[in-house]
Write a protein that binds this DNA or RNA. Structure first.
Lengths: 211, 211
DNA sequence: AACCTACAGATAATCGATTATTTTCGGTAG
DNA sequence: CTACCGAAAATAATCGATTATCTGTAGGTT
């Protein structure tokens, strides 16, 4: 693995984990020193973050963690609520047996992954977050459109970042029941119901952060 | 303006203009020499292209123009046909007087821009392409959601690239009538009709390249 | 007291050269 | 004739240093 890969992965994880507050300057020199690499490598990693929307570039003034917050999170959720239900309709129309199997598998993994790392934790575990992402992505993979999936990935990543700097999630919410309902509707080939449930699920998640 | 800005803009224009065939290697050393800058600058420009999806990165094997074609163009059109009608509904519901004025203005500009640079040209003029983009973007701007607009920008750019390497457009098509119909429906606040017309417009454009 | 200006420190942008990896091209054995 | 191997060339990755630009502050002016 190249040095810039390592620095990039490390930085990306740190930003998504919320180790830097929004608008925090990301200084190439400091990052280079910390990781024991040269400036060029640190710059390259930062450029890649910018491409992914995980860093802002201020010309002549360096890089910074993007300013996010509840408002942007709402916009991301709304964008998802436009795209994903429509994509799910396509997936329901086109998905084959392999897709059905993948949906079942990813939901099973999600349902079997504990919400919290340890009882009393304030934030969901990385494992659950990843299983959650995989479930939602698998649902859409049936549409067979790579561009749609790239768009999903982008919005999901942006959402992960913005969510960190919004309020904590509503713990009382029974997300699993919603996931199960979406899965059943999709596999029953009920496009309208599946799309509607997914739309509500996305907006419901967003609403639980608004308060 | 910084050197990397210049190289980046120049490269971006060249790629979008189709000066490099798909899968053409983009060699940092060559670009640096050609533009009279150092390797680091050329690399930075390429990294930015990658972030925008206008270049592919093959680890340890450099950069290349993304492999595109009719198939990818169809996928992009389909992705747009999922997102944009839904966004237009929002815009119709939320757009204010300023939005209405902007829509009228951008359509007027589009209608007044000649399709071809000179009679007999094989491809539409840059001016028309830009006016076309502005019209479609303005339609969606009424939704007031920056994330949706970023997604639109991304898909449009990707479409510009892929379209170059697809077949030529159907010249007999009367695109202006479709644009006018969409504008009228949107300003009449007929969300369903506007969304339907936009969806057909996108898919129609895609279909005209399939043959 | 408020505002401009020059200086100093910090930091971004750029460069030229070095190192590591991949690809290519002969050459040789099977 | 084909397949494998190794040296040479090409090129990607990385480095350390230099130059240009910005930011904040101290000092002077209105």
């Amino acid at each position: 693995m190249t040095a810039s890969e390592r620095v990039y992965a490390s930085l990306r994880a740190a930003v998504l984990e919320g180790q830097f507050p929004p608008c925090q300057a990301l200084k190439p020199q400091e990052l280079a020193t910390r990781h024991g690499v040269s400036l060029a490598v640190a710059r390259e990693a930062l450029l890649r973050l910018v491409g992914e929307g995980l860093a802002d570039r201020l010309p002549k003034r360096g890089f910074a963690v993007p300013a996010t917050g509840a408002e942007r999170w709402q916009q991301i959720a709304e964008a998802r609520s436009l795209m994903e239900p429509a994509a799910l309709r396509l997936a329901v129309a086109r998905g084959d047996l392999e897709w059905e199997a993948a949906v079942r598998a990813s939901h099973h993994r999600l349902a079997g992954t504990p919400f919290f790392e340890r009882p009393g934790d304030t934030w969901v575990s990385d494992a659950w977050a990843e299983a959650h992402r995989r479930f939602h992505r698998t649902l859409l993979e049936g549409c067979g459109n790579d561009v749609v999936l790239e768009t999903f990935d982008r919005l999901w990543t942006a959402g992960e970042l913005a969510r960190r700097w919004s309020l904590a999630a509503d713990p009382a919410r029974d997300a699993d029941a919603e996931h199960r309902a979406i899965e059943e509707a999709a596999l029953a080939r009920e496009a309208d119901r599946a799309a509607d449930l997914l739309c509500r699920h996305i907006l419901h998640t967003a609403a639980s952060l608004k308060s």
